[in-house]
Amino acid sequence: MRRDLELIRNETVKVWKKKRFAVIVLILLALVPVFVYAQMKIAQSSQGKYTDWRAELRQRIADNNNALTSDRIPEEWKKWRVALVQQLQYYLDRDVNPNTPNAVRFTNTFLQNAVGLFIPLMVLAVASDIVSSERAGGTIKMLLTRPVRRWRVLASKLVTLTMYVSLILVTTAAVSYLVSGLVFGYGGWREPVFVGFRLNGSDMDTSGVHAVTQGAYMLMQLGLVWFSAMTVAVIAFMVSVLVRSTAASLVTMMAAVISGSILANMASSWHSAKYLFNVNLDLSVYLQGSPPPIEGMTLGFSLVVLAVWAAAAIAVSFAVFTRQDILA
């Protein structure tokens, strides 16, 4: 056990000294202010137009209803708009402003938008080379000729990866909160958010709806984002075991993640696509109560699909790594 902790420490030091995490923090520090600025511009323009948030909300509902009557909008877009209209109406009926500008709201929205692409890409920066870099650099020969069983070496890498994924998520949320707070103020933890919207065909079932605080909402969201980020991470981990070159493993995984977000937009009639891991990554749609990319997908379904993919990836990683010949 003590030896295992030392192994995990070693792997953590390697990733750290390679400055992978530093690069991720720099990317966040460069990009988050851009998003904050964009959000500030949106807030300013609507403030100029409306004096009351209720008037703005009514206008949005009316706009979306108008769009629904048009024939030119595809069916699935309509479904999404119907859900949105009904949610907005729910907020209006209960006199709760769904768009108060504050750092917590910004962070929640940012995580929501980042779960599909931005966070997976940052996770790949660590996951894609944690094994392949040892093979590409030849250091695997030193690593595997020490008196430690191979599965222990791989397990230490997996634990390290889990810790970095968690750290990346927390850092993303923290940077987003701290930077946006400069503009929007650091409050908003206790503001209510409605969760539990359920879609029944094109009808919104609001019987299960209840209010949670934005702080609680952020925790729930972080949990879901962590789950999908970990799935991407362990699949990348497997690819990193199978492929010798870091570049090849990174490109493979990026292609998989990006094609997932493309598929999610076009596969609504190809139902078996819902068993692919990459269309299930956006778990926050279930929290928001928007329609899932493919009919029949639910939170439970997506969690199971991701868990099965992740478990299979871990099994393949260990089976291959402990048996493979290190030939070159």
């Binding site: 030091v13 390697k14 000294k17 390679k18 400055k19 650099g137 030849g138 250091t139 020969k141 030193m142 000729t145």
Partner: peptide, 13 residues
């Protein structure tokens, strides 16, 4: 103790 082919170590450390 062994060196197999080239003595590759972590260059960034």
């Amino acid at each position: 103790g062994c060196i197999v082919e080239n003595p590759e170590m972590y260059g960034y450390m």
